[in-house]
Amino acid sequence: MKTKIYVNNEKWVAGITIKDEAELENNNMALHACKNPADVLENRRKLANFLDCRLDDFVCGQQTHSANFYQVTYADKGRGADSVNTAIPDTDALYTYEPNVLLCSFNADCVPVMFYHERSGIVGVIHSGWQGTVKEISLKLFHHLIQGEQCHPNDFHVQVGPAISQEKFEVDEDVYLKYNTLGYADDWIVYNGETDKYHIDNQQVVKKQCRLAGIPEEHITIDSTCTYKSPDGFSYREDKKSGRHLCFVMKKK
């Protein structure tokens, strides 16, 4: 089971599954983008065994490139674990106070964000493709946690996971204008006059949103692996039938 672990101690575990030709469907973890759901479920069970938890500890959302977030409780355990029909609808970010709940996000080029809050014990995942980024999903969730849940920003620790690189994230003017309208993304946008295309570093824009929420720079880490270029990456832009990584975080007891 190829998995990249970013944190694993007595309090938290966070990481992302890796594309692996030795596994079923190359270790695809997404029921909404697969050839055989039974193979994906087998991959998820292997991940559960690796993390010393159960499949029914997983909680998944039906990702729609929204800016919607959802607080997960024990009553939600198992939602989306073995069927897309039971996943939390129209939700691209999940957070919880509960221990032993594995929050899941699925990614193939979009920016995955995993985080935990030292004092409150909150953990969360965010799925931020370009649409989620221009809708400011990360900024909105962190504002909610800081203002609504009274989480001090200095206690957040954020991991930005693998995503498509600026080199490979090539867009037309309509997408560029959405980023430009944010007012803080231009430092990570490059225009190519030969192709009349714009190249955007979505990871850095997401990091900027975390910083705008008040999270300290030193508490934000970026995995710069490009999902398009890396053999370990699933890339929707490279292959429209691509599988998905599973990005996860769990608070331990």
Rank of each mutant, 00 (worst) to 15 (best):
I126L: 03
Y70R: 01
A213F: 08
L246F: 01
N154Y: 15
N202P: 10
L141V: 07
Y236I: 14
E217Y: 09
C34E: 03
D155F: 10
D155R: 09
T195A: 14
L102E: 06
E218Q: 11
N68V: 13
D90L: 13
N154K: 15
H157R: 06
F156M: 00
R211S: 11
Q147K: 15
G78V: 00
V111W: 03
R79E: 11
L141S: 08
L141Q: 08
A38T: 11
F50R: 10
T225R: 06
E167N: 13
T64E: 12
I126R: 02
C110Y: 07
F115N: 00
R54K: 15
L102F: 07
L102W: 05
T73R: 11
E21W: 12
Y191A: 13
K208A: 08
E118R: 09
A33N: 09
T227Q: 03
V13L: 01
C60P: 14
F169V: 01
L141N: 08
D232V: 09
E167Q: 14
T227W: 05
V113C: 03
N68T: 12
N192F: 08
D56R: 12
R79S: 13
V206S: 01
Y236A: 15
N9K: 04
N100Q: 14
K207H: 04
K11Y: 12
K35S: 15
D92V: 11
K77F: 06
H117N: 08
L51H: 06
N36K: 07
K240Y: 08
T86L: 01
K46G: 12
E98F: 02
V206N: 02
F106R: 05
I222M: 01
K11G: 10
A185D: 11
G183A: 09
Y179R: 03
H245K: 04
I146C: 09
N26K: 09
N26W: 00
I126W: 04
C247E: 07
L31G: 03
V7A: 06
K2Q: 12
V123D: 00
F69I: 01
M1Q: 07
V13D: 02
V59G: 08
N202I: 12
Y191N: 12
C34I: 00
L47F: 08
R54W: 14
D172V: 14
Y184K: 11
A163Y: 03
N202M: 11
V171H: 10
R79W: 10
D39Y: 08
G148H: 05
A81K: 02
C34L: 01
H117R: 04
H127D: 10
T86F: 00
K4T: 05
H65G: 15
D109H: 01
K77G: 09
D109R: 01
V84R: 09
L103W: 02
Q150K: 15
Q62A: 15
A81E: 06
H127I: 09
D52F: 15
K241R: 14
G193F: 13
V123L: 01
I88C: 06
